[in-house]
Design a binder for these strands. Structure first.
Lengths: 360, 360
DNA sequence: CTGAAAGCGCTTACAG
DNA sequence: CTGAAAGCGCTTACAG
């Protein structure tokens, strides 16, 4: 099949290609009647603009870029990205913008990707996720003049704006809730330590610990994977003064923590309360269902897309702080049954054989 | 910053733009020495081809399209897509092909998207997932002449090739394994019923049921969501002759089924064995860990990408059947403790309060 | 309000 | 082996 072009439309309508272009783009320069006629013809012959031609003359790619800098396996099991993508899409698709994704191995590769995308005119703007402390991507994006929106708190990052929610506030609220239930020994198991939002939550945790005098509250760094979370949780639950409540930095780690508790015969929520940071369908599926800190990530993505499109069309954009994440209490949190030294974990009988995986 | 073009390179090298193009693309027409000089200059000034210009003259977009036709929430919680994406990427990125994703509401919208992508020359080829029986996308893609690769078994689909694994074989193997453990009352909880691979697994299930005379083996349709799986599982476990083993069509549904069993006081694997179809990190995290049917989905994606790129460059491509999915036994399967009528489910005490969600 | 023309940055036959 | 030129399908000043 041959694709129709504006030349075809022009011939049919008996006007010049320029006139067709004006009509199609809603510019001044054609009478209302001919515009209508031209639009009707375009519709009839199934014309869509050739993006390449448009990009070449108008210098817009009608695409935005989202680099994904996490290993494939982590990517798959975290709902965050797909939810973000679907949110971005709701805005982009209505304006015929495409979303170009690319998996990169590390920050260095991601920076190279920005340069390549810029040189290729592949995208009109980019979304930055997982900001690090002193993130080296930021100066590069600024230098290239590539419109960008950060997913996360951009404070301290000169020159780029972001869309984020008040993680510090949500963390404080969560700890206060656990304390109100009677918990004192509260642990926080974190995501990758040099991510900016990990830092922000860490700081909030430390602040509330000081304020409420929770001497035994501790932070344990992990990396978002279930494996690492299981390891950390096992160590935590084996300690003499084991925590009565744990806050995990994502849903996967929380589920892994729950499984370790079950494996060690620690009852949830009687002996141990669990809070998952990002809420997800998964949190509602496990038993007991997990109390979680919930954000509307698709809305988040939609907002970021709108900001980015505005920036691309030349508008000055502002930072946007979304609603504070909500704490959604479910079955995994309760008052601790005992604040005295905990009973030693009873070795489970029924499930002991399942400890070694892959017994075939 | 101004982007360098081949005109800049030509000026520096003292040759024509045509010569630069030949040198850069490895075509005949330039001496080896000038080619080297030109490549060095391109490297030095940081040149990358303008994709729009390339697409316009060479009629290649250097992008492939992946429409995602599932609701945002389902998308996020299923590892399958992200793993597929990362597999596609490993091949695409080495050849500077971009992956363009778009979320669509339904098959109709997806068909419109193919037409638009084709008219816009946005992509050079597409990946089709989740094939339906008599899928209406197939004739459209063929009519447009859009190179395409199906993820899934393309038998019965004239004109398009696919990359798939032997689901029927894996299902048969799984049932045989459960029967060898002593199970007779085996249930299968499926994904969306009109997907082709659901049908294929259903047929295999029915065949093995006939062959082994498993009169009580049953199929229950669901939709890949945890909610629906929980509902179906609750009904199954409440029935007089409840199954002793359930095979779920994805990991999320299996986890939900496990949670329902725990909620109802049905011990896994003593009273109930559980098998998850697609293996994922999640299956290893829950307690007990889930026996699963495992495929290497990233490799799958990589293969599909290679096929598609070959098709785009004009090669005739063949169907490719990947390795049969492997059954990975873990802690959720065991011989049934009793084949006689099951004991009534004991109402759990500790967890009763967690039945109502969102008690704040 | 409209038409003819140049230009975006490449690729590729076509002469030399 | 090399150069000059046309063309991909649009957009956009520039004359009329």
């Amino acid at each position: 099949m041959k694709r129709p072009t504006i030349a075809d439309i022009a011939k049919r309508a008996g006007v010049s290609k320029g006139a067709v272009s004006y009509a199609l783009n809603g510019h001044a320069g054609v009478s209302e009647t001919t515009r209508k006629r031209i639009l009707a013809i375009a519709e009839e012959i199934g014309w869509s603009p050739n993006t390449a031609a448009r990009a070449l003359s108008g210098s817009v790619a009608f695409a935005i870029g989202l680099p994904l800098c996490r290993p494939a396996r982590t990517l798959g099991s975290e709902p965050f990205f797909m939810e973000l993508v679907s949110g971005l899409e709701t805005e982009l698709s209505t304006r015929s913008y495409a979303l170009t994704m690319q998996v990169v191995a590390d920050v260095k590769a991601e920076i190279a990707l920005y340069r390549r995308w810029w040189a290729e005119r592949r995208v009109d703007g980019v979304i930055l996720v997982d900001l690090h402390v002193n993130d080296p991507r930021v100066p590069v994006v600024i230098e290239l003049g590539l419109p960008a929106v950060i997913i996360g708190n951009p404070s301290g990052i000169g020159g780029l704006t972001g869309v984020w929610s008040d993680d510090a506030g949500a963390l404080t609220e969560t700890v206060e809730y656990l304390v109100a239930l009677g918990h004192r020994r509260i642990a926080r198991v974190t995501g990758l330590p040099d991510l900016l939002h990990t830092r922000i939550r860490d700081d909030a945790f430390t602040a509330i610990r000081e304020r409420l005098g929770l001497a035994e509250a501790v932070i344990h760094p992990a990396d978002y994977t279930g494996e690492e979370s299981a390891r950390v949780t096992r160590r935590l639950l084996s300690s003499a003064h084991r925590p009565t409540a744990v806050i995990y930095d994502n849903d996967i780690m929380a589920v892994a923590g729950l499984a370790v508790a079950q494996e060690m015969g620690v009852r949830v929520p009687a002996d141990l309360s669990i809070v998952a940071w990002d809420d997800s369908p998964l949190c509602k599926l496990v038993h007991p269902s997990l109390t979680a800190v919930s954000r509307d990530i698709p809305r988040y993505g939609a907002r970021a897309a709108r900001q980015l499109l505005a920036a691309i069309s030349g508008a000055r954009i502002e930072n946007y702080q979304d609603a504070t994440p909500r704490l959604v209490p479910r079955g995994s949190t309760a008052p601790p049954t005992q604040t005295a030294p905990p009973a030693p974990a009873a070795p489970p009988t029924q499930t002991a054989q399942t400890a070694q995986p892959d017994r075939a």
